[in-house]
Design a protein around this nucleic acid. Sequence first.
DNA 1: GAGAACCGTGTGAACGTTCACATACATCTT
DNA 2: AAGATGTATGTGAACGTTCACACGGTTCTC
Lengths: 356, 356
Amino acid sequence: MASRASVTIEHVAKAAGVSRQTVSRVINKGPNVKPDVRERVEAAIAALGYVPNLSARRMGGGKSFLILAVNDRQRTIENWRAGRGNDWVDQMLHGGITECEKHGYHLIFELIDTDPAAASRQLSNAIAALRPDGVILTPPHSDNEELPALLADRGIPCARIGRRPGTQFIDVFMDEEEAAAEITTRLIALGHMRLAFIAGSPEYGNSTKRLAGFSRALAASGLGEAAGSVAKGNFRFDDAAREIERLLTSADPPTALIAENDEMAFAAMHVADRLGLAVPQQLSIASFEDTPGVRFSVPPLTAIRQPTAEMIAAACSQLIAASAGGPAHGSIKLPYRLVERATTAPAPAPANRKTG
Amino acid sequence: MASRASVTIEHVAKAAGVSRQTVSRVINKGPNVKPDVRERVEAAIAALGYVPNLSARRMGGGKSFLILAVNDRQRTIENWRAGRGNDWVDQMLHGGITECEKHGYHLIFELIDTDPAAASRQLSNAIAALRPDGVILTPPHSDNEELPALLADRGIPCARIGRRPGTQFIDVFMDEEEAAAEITTRLIALGHMRLAFIAGSPEYGNSTKRLAGFSRALAASGLGEAAGSVAKGNFRFDDAAREIERLLTSADPPTALIAENDEMAFAAMHVADRLGLAVPQQLSIASFEDTPGVRFSVPPLTAIRQPTAEMIAAACSQLIAASAGGPAHGSIKLPYRLVERATTAPAPAPANRKTG
DNA sequence: GAGAACCGTGTGAACGTTCACATACATCTT
DNA sequence: AAGATGTATGTGAACGTTCACACGGTTCTC
């Protein structure tokens, strides 16, 4: 085994007839290398199949070429355990790996606890061991104020995903309020005059923003806020189902439902089916999450597609730039997309409903 | 920024009043450290919040505490792009991250091309840069013979997933043939006398094994191989749908279908629906893949649950042991599970069918 | 045309560990 | 009781890079 010892920068230097440092300059695209020397070195690199050792680079120059992306442990493991798959993780890796590869970086994905004290400790350990050039914080850690402070203290750039932007760090987000307003406006345009918003929970920062968008759109349409009701579904199937049933069996039930996640949207489908309401003929349903379950359900749901992969890719790109001397702060707003599928349609004729 | 400089082994050594090397021995659980000294060092480590720098450890001792898991780029990206989610990746991370964390290791997930030349080059580059202590090869790379050879040449232990075991490397797998036989036997026990196997493609090693299991079970049951038909679905919805329709509209159609992946199982559901065959009353359908789509479809499918997370965890554990001096070869067979859900039922009464 | 500024290249030190070896002392062996 | 063995600890070197700086040559500046 191990017959071929690894080729180092010295081997390349000798082969190209230059010094260590010149090879280093070529690798790092440094200035002050004559074109012919550069070519000679590049030829030697290719001939020997030389690839710089990341650990040594980190030791020498302080750059690790690693981006650390952290996710919430409980939520992630719970999804995996339940065999539910994890679209967020998939999209995150998609955007992260693709972008990192472009710059010769590597993405490391790790889990940290929700509990703030544990989160700080775990993140601290991870960065001490790995010394990443940048860290990506995803919800709910995006809202933890200690984590970015801890990273700033160690001089590591930090990007937060899906959070109202501040000024000190890199914040990558989509306009949650706007998205909620757009889907609401769209449903109103389809003739719906009674709408309901199935909310997650107010602890989750984005819930508040989305609700604001819903209200704003109602007001702007002239329908007025009274046309909209809000049910609290806690992001859970059961809680949502109960509230939705209450709404749909009330005196003047909504004809369109906007759920904050797919689990609650499915609850809506379920209740509609049980009450004998045809979707979308008698009831329109839209979700705020566009996971595979939503896309491939029967019928497929109308939903807001969050640009998860794009947000992570943008975060990686910014962090890599920051570690190369670029700014370690700034905010990036990425566009969401309203994907209309088969669960939204024009409102049923008022007559049917009044007599029904 | 960067107010706190990082704490190194020297700081710990000074704090505990010992030398570098003694601290190193404590960290690495080496022998020949007096209990009271060990305690003193551990106290200093805790007090200073010292965490060893991975890059430095790799430089000094050759161990990187990294496990590299490689997946097929085309297949993975295609799944991500299509928004289909990627259960394999999810389960892989689940098993890999959990197991690596236990041993103080980190998992790095990367993609390499299917094309053998490109795969060799990319893997070669990745290990030169990262110097992982072990590499996990997943299908279809598990069947590539050059990759393990390349790794052996560099002295890096290698684990292959889902492959008939050899003797030189670590092979982690489940009994595909047995699983196919079991599901077939179960359907026969439910009274089915005409069965069909919707095969993927013979290039995929496991297809052959599963087909063998199907045949073996038919023979063992006394029904004889004539009771089973085989359709080639190429793992694709459209190809499978066409073949399944042909089967179901033939003179003596099967009452039970076993599909090699969920896409083809869905094709079966689709065709059954179109032909007006009730599932499972008139037609039983089973899948060989147990992804979220299968689990949460309506009705949920009976399927073989492959122990993906467990296989990756076992691979990590073996690789970590190997890098600590343990054996770098051996095979581990992990149990699959037949999960009976709502798409399999007793065969319809023969009278109904003959007259139908 | 002499000093300053820049360009291209090389050298020694440093990064934070572990390895190989050295040392000091304690315990066993005969 | 002297040598052999074992235990506990420390020291210098090495790993493969980049950084800081040095140096010689060219081109600008006045």
